[in-house]
């Protein structure tokens, strides 16, 4: 008698966040979050690879960003100019920027190999400025390149910040997400 196996709609086997490679990625994401809250923008930029992109799209479904309008679509050149803008003291929005505190959690590893990890997460950020608290909620995707030399060399290849209200009016910001 033959046993029939009914194929089930196979859910992928979850990748545990305790996988040491994933844990390295999460450590980097938290380090990045803290640098952004401290507005340590030069140190933040150093976490990205030279071919890395930092993206805040408007279209929530977009996977490619070249042919559409985004809030931020920074390659290394734009990112460095942005860091200069945020730090050089000419930009009145940056000089008088809101203070921010952000939490990044609900990590879901999407793929993992010895040299690259892709992790989805949730970010809740509160920005305070002049008696107002603004709430910024977003889904994040980080693509992180793991260094053969250990965690100190891990870098961000791509970060996508998908705001829940990306298609609505958000405050003009003097900080980064």
């Amino acid at each position: 008698m033959t046993e029939t196996v009914t194929p089930t709609a196979a859910l992928p086997v979850p990748i545990p966040t305790t996988d040491p490679r994933v844990a390295r990625a999460i450590e980097l994401i938290w380090r990045e979050a803290e640098l952004l809250d401290r507005k340590a923008y030069e140190a933040w930029d150093a976490l990205y690879t030279d071919d890395g992109f930092y993206v805040i799209p408007i279209d929530p479904e977009a996977e490619r960003f070249d042919d559409i309008l985004n809030m931020v679509y920074d390659d290394a050149r734009m990112r460095r100019m942005r860091v200069a803008r945020m730090t050089e003291g000419y930009a009145i929005a940056a000089v008088d920027a809101a203070r921010t505190v952000r939490t990044v959690s609900r990590f879901v590893p999407e793929s993992v190999s010895d040299d690259q990890v892709v992790v989805r997460s949730a970010q809740v950020l509160v920005a305070y400025k002049r008696e107002n608290h603004d709430l910024w909620a977003a889904d994040l995707v980080h693509r992180i390149r793991l260094s053969p030399d250990g965690p100190a060399g891990d870098r961000i290849v791509q970060k996508i910040v998908r705001l829940v209200d990306s298609e609505s009016a958000v405050p003009a910001a003097g900080f980064l997400l």
Partner: peptide, 18 residues
């Protein structure tokens, strides 16, 4: 357009602060 405009542009947030 992205370089100057919008909530994270290099121009708009400074206008909005003003």
């Amino acid at each position: 357009h992205e370089h100057f405009q919008g909530p994270f542009g290099f121009g708009t947030p400074d206008d909005a602060e003003g």
